[in-house]
């Protein structure tokens, strides 16, 4: 049986206490919400904290609250299943809720949290392997080694951004609240990630993501399309979140976020320009998708060929725009 290594398990009584404990232990500790990403990685020796600080039991992180500006604040430890079953959230943010519903399998969504999914580790099939496997190959820079196995010439790790909900949250221009030793700050989800599969998050190691703030959806209609091999369990091979504002059939505004095609989700909304002021038709959509998919850089570190994944990014963009329009 694949087992966890030894660690100490801490169960702080509050977020403040958790933040304090985290700053004490520094890099020797990891916070854990649902554990569905952290625990398999610990079993495979990819992450080796001495201390695991559990957050899942903290009621203050488990609330979905309507806020006065018309948006919602979702606690980091709200499970993906709870998001999926919230009719209010589904009405306001169909793309985000769709993304949550497409994460892994039903049982995993009962444990996996929205905060955990925003922080989900980047993935790579040279990295998501056991200690013995990685030792046999030679380790990679993301853990225990010094080169990128999929792109040996790369100075940075090219593991793949694999959160389904991050692009959906970005498409709504959501923010997250981080709590650290210096107090609390609110940052856009879009600024949480960077183009480095190893250091994929910009938040400081001693900061805890405590909530996701989704702004008033207003006229924004949204969608999320996930490309994967199977209808369940799998991580995205490409993911596209779209938010649209329409006046009748005419597009007023459009945001497009693509993910799983590089180390971070990418805002490619600039490519939607030809749609603005126009009706959605095949020709424009094809042009938009081709432009939007340009920054996609899939590599041979996930399922199926990277050429196909790149092509599917375009298809998924087209589909996501159409679906967002249908929601309208």
């Amino acid at each position: 049986m694949l087992r966890l290594p030894r660690f100490s398990y801490l169960r702080p009584g509050s977020v403040a206490e958790a933040a304090q404990v985290l700053s004490e232990y520094g890099s020797r500790a990891m916070v854990m919400a649902g554990g569905t990403d952290l625990l398999p990685k610990m079993k495979r020796g990819q992450i080796e904290p001495e201390v695991v600080i559990s957050l899942g039991h903290l009621d203050e992180l488990r609330q979905i609250r309507a806020v006065s500006d018309g948006g919602f604040e979702i606690g980091a430890c709200v499970t993906l299943a709870e998001v999926v079953s919230s009719s209010e959230l589904r009405a306001a943010y169909p793309g985000y809720v769709r993304a949550a519903a497409l994460v892994s399998s039903p049982a995993l969504r009962n444990a996996g949290t929205i905060g955990g999914n925003l922080c989900v580790d980047t993935r790579c099939n040279y990295y998501d392997e056991s200690y013995e496997w990685r030792k046999a190959l030679g380790f990679c820079m993301k853990k225990d080694g010094d080169i990128c196995r999929v792109a040996p010439a790369s100075a940075t790790c090219r593991a793949i951004a694999s959160s389904d909900t991050a692009p959906a949250a970005m498409s709504m221009q959501a923010t997250v609240v981080l709590v650290g030793p210096k107090g609390m700050r609110e940052v856009p989800v879009a600024s949480l990630y960077q183009d480095d599969g190893q250091f994929y998050m910009t938040k400081a190691a001693d900061e805890i993501l405590v909530s996701l703030r989704m702004p008033d959806p207003g006229r924004w209609k949204s969608s999320y399309v996930k490309v994967r091999n199977r209808g369940s369990i799998d991580f995205p091979l490409a993911g596209v979140a779209v938010a649209l504002q329409l006046s009748g059939p005419v597009v007023d505004d459009c945001r497009i976020i693509i993910t799983a095609v590089g180390p971070q989700p990418l805002d490619v909304s600039h490519a939607a320009q030809p749609l603005l002021g126009n009706r959605i038709d095949d020709t424009i959509l094809e042009e938009v998708a081709a432009e939007a998919a340009k920054p996609a850089r899939p590599l041979d570190n996930a399922d199926l060929s990277y050429v196909w994944r790149k092509r599917m990014t375009r298809r998924a963009i087209e589909q996501a725009v159409r679906e967002a329009a249908e929601v309208a």
Binding site: P40, V52, S54, A107, L108, N110, A111
Partner: peptide, 15 residues
């Protein structure tokens, strides 16, 4: 009452 993957649940989570 909720299905969970017992291989990914720590004792501290089911207290």
């Amino acid at each position: 009452g909720t299905p969970q993957l017992s291989c990914l649940v720590l004792p501290g989570q089911v207290e």
